[in-house]
């Protein structure tokens, strides 16, 4: 019983992270139509910057979110507004744009990853912050993991409200439905798409900040999280924010169950789920 509870809690904690990294990718693909395979690299940047700021300057990791988030948003915004937008305009069809943009994103992945490798080497780094245990009945959780889960859920929720309620959020959703009509209705499509991409990057950056509190930081860590985010996004239904959120928790729980038996098989299990899902229900949980 205790093991089951421990595994479930670990799954929830892992799921929170997965949900957070996937929501960003979901937005980028769902609206901006870029399957950003460099998503994990933004996570890596977030994690590394936090590590540097905390260990070198003693800046509180939670405060880092305020620094890292906007900075990465600007990078994402500029990237879309220049490169991806250029590819979008030149592409003969939306399909061609998706294909070309995924390749350009791979280029981005290599550039960011290897710049990071040049700067910080391939060593694994980490720091301790809020690492004291909290006892909840029979389960013991490290405080930083609980904080991470709290922020992950909170940020996803704020984000959902932003999309559902605000003017910009509505513009984003209309752009996701039908970019051509949205631009006829006075939505500045170039700006909205760039904002979406920037927001996706921002979520990745913040996820990186949170991750660095509990997981090791390494210049090669990005692809791992990208793959998980892609799996979750497919699991939840491409472009469905709620689906990605739920999918993140499902994958987290699956991961923690498999890890209980053999940690080496967790990734294999993710891929297996992913491939099965693509075959059985390519539209995902919440897909239309």
């Amino acid at each position: 019983m205790e093991t089951v509870l421990n595994v479930a809690v670990a799954g929830l904690l892992l799921g929170g992270i997965f949900a957070l990294i996937s929501v960003g990718l979901s937005l980028q693909y769902g609206v901006a139509r870029v399957l950003n395979v460099a998503h994990g690299e933004f996570i890596m940047i977030g994690a590394f910057v936090t590590w540097v700021l905390y260990t070198e300057f003693g800046i509180n990791p939670l405060l880092c979110m305020v620094i890292v988030g906007p900075a990465i948003f600007v990078i994402g915004f500029i990237l879309y507004r220049t490169m991806f937008n250029y590819i979008r305009i030149k592409a003969p069809s939306p399909d061609a744009f998706e294909g070309n943009s995924i390749l350009a994103a791979f280029g981005l992945l290599f550039v960011i990853q290897y710049i990071a490798l040049t700067l910080w080497g391939s060593n694994i780094h980490g720091y301790t912050y809020l690492a004291f245990p909290i006892h909840l009945g029979t389960v013991t959780i490290a405080a930083n993991r609980l904080v991470t889960l709290g922020f992950a859920v909170g940020i996803s929720f704020v984000f959902y409200i932003f999309l559902a309620r605000t003017r910009l959020g509505k513009a984003i959703r209309s752009a996701a439905q039908d970019p051509a009509t949205a631009s006829l209705m006075g939505v500045n499509i170039k700006r909205v798409l760039a904002i979406c991409f920037g927001l996706g990057a921002l979520m990745a950056g913040i996820a990186g900040v949170l991750l660095s509190m509990t997981y090791p930081v390494n210049a090669n860590m990005g692809l791992h999280y990208t793959i998980i985010a892609i799996i979750v996004v497919v699991l939840g239904g491409m472009g469905s924010i709620v689906g990605s959120f739920i999918g993140g928790f499902i994958l987290g729980i699956v991961g923690s169950i498999v890890s209980y038996f053999d940690p080496g098989l967790a990734l294999v299990a993710y891929y297996a789920i992913f491939i099965l899902l693509l075959l059985v229900r390519p539209k995902g949980i919440m897909g239309k």
């Binding site: 390749l103 280029g107 550039v111 960011i112």
Partner: peptide, 11 residues
């Protein structure tokens, strides 16, 4: 720098 150049070339 090979992979950085490679990535830039790809883009």
């Amino acid at each position: 720098q090979y992979m950085i150049i490679f990535g830039l070339l790809l883009m």
